[in-house]
């Protein structure tokens, strides 16, 4: 099966090793006999309705994010339609913020987002930096462990009743206070976790791939053949130990 991936603004949003996430999708799809075709979508590129099974948005520095934000906001309709039609979407860090309704700067400025996720982000005084450990709140995998790294000044506040990615075991999460991390709408996931996210959380990569495959085939999501994932589990164990040890505490700069 061919899985069509739209990678949004890869040359602007790539600050936290987003290509690691793409590499994981490529290899895990290939191990199951599927082919991932990644198409960059950048300033001025048209987003064809129904042309992608999986959309990926990474994180960028403030300057780069400001550069692409208007272009992304102009795609709000197309992105929401894609998600409503069952395409999978993964947005990390800055991409997560930009797919909310908007970002309120410390000077009161408002950066319009694409509104895929029902949330808003407010710039904070300090950055929340460190290792993170979550327990998944996804209905497909309740309680499963997710380990990553976060580095964000924005406090993301979800509308009441929103689905999240996970409950924070160690670290800060969405806003450092709610105890939850990430957001889910249909087959769209947004999260602050990089590291990158997928190499050390392979089951999550497989879940998103199964959604993309479901969109590609038009059938319901089917679980993928398990892989050995020995190294992945080892990396996950080290990363979650780090979060338990030192997650959620301010780092001296």
């Amino acid at each position: 099966m061919i899985i069509r991936v739209g990678h949004l603004y890869p040359e602007y949003l790539n600050i936290y090793a987003d290509r690691g996430n793409i590499a994981v999708f490529l290899h895990r799809a290939a191990s199951r006999g599927h082919e991932l075709r990644v198409e960059p979508i950048t300033l001025g590129t048209r987003l064809e309705p129904g042309a992608h099974d999986l959309l990926y948005v990474g994180g960028g520095q403030d300057r780069e994010q400001t550069m692409i934000a208007p272009d992304l906001a102009a795609r709000a309709g197309a992105l929401r339609e894609a998600v409503e039609a069952g395409a999978a979407l993964l947005a990390v860090c800055g991409g997560y913020q930009l797919l909310g309704r908007g970002y309120r700067g410390r000077d009161g400025s408002w950066l319009e987002g694409a509104g895929v996720f029902p949330l808003e982000t407010l710039a904070g005084e300090t950055r929340m930096i460190g290792d993170v450990l979550l327990e998944s709140t996804l209905e497909e995998a309740p309680g499963r462990s997710i380990a990553g790294f976060e580095n964000h000044a924005g406090r993301t506040v979800l509308d009441p009743g929103c689905e999240t990615l996970g409950r924070v075991v160690a670290g800060f999460g969405n806003d450092g206070g709610s105890g939850y991390e990430g957001c889910r709408v249909g087959r769209a996931l947004g999260t602050y976790l990089h590291g990158p996210l997928l190499p050390r959380n392979p089951w999550l990569a497989d879940l998103v791939l199964s959604w993309a495959l479901a969109h590609a085939t038009g059938a319901g999501p089917q679980p993928l053949t398990p892989l050995s994932d020995e190294l992945e589990q080892e990396a996950h164990a080290v990363s979650s130990a780090r979060a338990r040890e030192r997650g959620g505490r301010p780092v001296r700069s």
Partner: peptide, 15 residues
């Protein structure tokens, strides 16, 4: 390593 002097965030190796 991932101590303060190395950077605690190891994601850079993917770049």
């Amino acid at each position: 390593n991932d101590r303060i002097a190395d950077g605690r965030d190891v994601s850079w190796i993917w770049d």
